[in-house]
Computed example of a mutant assay.
Amino acid sequence: MHVSELRFSLADVAGVRLAVSPANETVMSMWAVSSPVHYAVHLPWIDRARVTLRRPEVADRVRPLVELARPRTWLPDFLTPAARPNVEMAEQLDQIAATPPAVVVQDLLATTPSRPLSPFGRALLADPRGLLPQLVDAVRVWYDEAIAPDWPRMRALLDADVAYRAAQLAENGAGRFFEQLHPSLRWHGDRVISDDTFERDFDLRGRGLALNPTVFTERHVLWNLLEDSLPAGAYPVRALGTLWETSAPPPGDPLARVVGPGRAALLHLLDTAATTTDLARFAGMSAGNVSQHLSALHDAGLVSRVRQGRHVLYRNTEAAAVLLRASRGG
């Protein structure tokens, strides 16, 4: 194991920012599809995604992304652009499409130490201007077909992580924040030291650092660190094991007898922060019913709410956690 060092100025510390990147999740999800044994937590999603990928009309259009996002292969940085708060997929697709040909070539060549380029990678290297639209279309199709149906669930988990980390940064400062972000990171003076698969000494040069949680890596922080790109890092999201859980109350749930089945169902779901829209989808209720239940639970001190950009996230309070532990027999 090697060590990478990221050197910070005061401007870089002030420029640390957290966001969710739908493009990163879309691209990195290909690793899980290609190597499910290493992503067992995602098996419910992988099963559906593989069925989708076998459809001829999807397979043909997604092939460029499949070839570039192979297991054990570095991703070209332009495919995982640094995210800003509240960015939408369409904006990130436009950003990828606007990548200058010279940057496409540079980023492709930077991946070759890990593995030779695929046939599409070699073709893109030779004709970046002509073939980049095919790659952008591949990312768009894969997002629409495989990610978008489950994006509310993924987004809720990612947004909750951003809110949690932002609070840590505000309360504890940058040094403690990075050490809590992942066990492989340490703060030393004016730099972050990262256990890595290779050695780098990288100066952020006042550009700050964009960080985004991801559901598609569990073991490492993945860095986008090229001199001509905005510095960025993707780190494993918290509570990943809850992503595909069904959290409906069990039959005979004593909590449902006390607060009603609808409100009990929401409390079981709110171990992880979620929006009203997410809860309506997961619980099979109308948004109006969810809003009424959340209002009553909030007034009773059982759920908290916090605004994160354009979203309002709800989560159980400690009082609700006590009730849930009792109802689950814990």
Rank of each mutant, 00 (worst) to 15 (best):
G189I: 00
H298L: 05
L131S: 04
V58M: 09
N212H: 11
P236I: 00
P116I: 08
A300N: 07
T52E: 12
G208S: 00
S295I: 04
A210K: 08
E245M: 12
H188W: 00
W151D: 07
L294M: 09
A146C: 14
L269M: 07
A123Q: 14
A14M: 05
V103L: 13
A234D: 06
A320G: 05
Y39F: 15
L125M: 11
W74C: 02
N24V: 10
A326E: 11
A287C: 04
D12P: 08
V37A: 15
L124F: 04
N316L: 07
T214C: 04
P76G: 10
D161M: 08
V303T: 12
P116E: 06
V303I: 08
S247R: 15
V37Y: 10
T52Q: 12
A11K: 11
L79P: 12
G175E: 02
P81I: 01
A170Y: 02
N24M: 09
F178M: 03
V41Y: 06
P149T: 10
N224K: 13
P56T: 04
P101M: 07
Q106F: 09
W151T: 06
L204W: 07
L255F: 13
R165D: 03
L158V: 11
R176D: 14
R205A: 15
R48G: 05
P183V: 09
V33C: 13
D161H: 10
W31I: 08
E88I: 11
Q106S: 14
M89A: 08
Y164C: 04
Q308K: 05
A90C: 02
A167K: 11
V33N: 02
F78E: 02
A102F: 10
Q308F: 00
L297Y: 13
R305M: 11
P22R: 02
Y314T: 01
T242V: 08
V16Q: 09
P100F: 12
T73I: 00
L124D: 00
G233H: 03
L117G: 02
L324D: 02
F178Y: 11
D228M: 10
P44V: 01
L209A: 05
M30L: 15
A40G: 13
Q180L: 14
R200N: 07
L294G: 04
A321G: 14
S327K: 08
L222K: 15
L181Q: 13
W74E: 00
G206Q: 07
G208Y: 01
L225I: 09
L230M: 06
A234M: 09
M1G: 14
D271F: 05
P22F: 01
S295A: 14
N86V: 06
A23W: 00
A49F: 11
A123W: 02
S35F: 10
A280Q: 04
A19V: 12
D150F: 11
L209D: 08
L324K: 03
P152C: 06
G241D: 12
R325T: 06
L267V: 01
A49N: 11
G309W: 11
L10I: 07
P85T: 10
L222P: 00
V87A: 13
G208N: 03
V139W: 01
R165I: 05
D12H: 06
S118M: 07
A300Q: 09
M89Q: 02
A138N: 03
A163R: 14
E91A: 15
M30G: 11
I147F: 03
A126R: 15
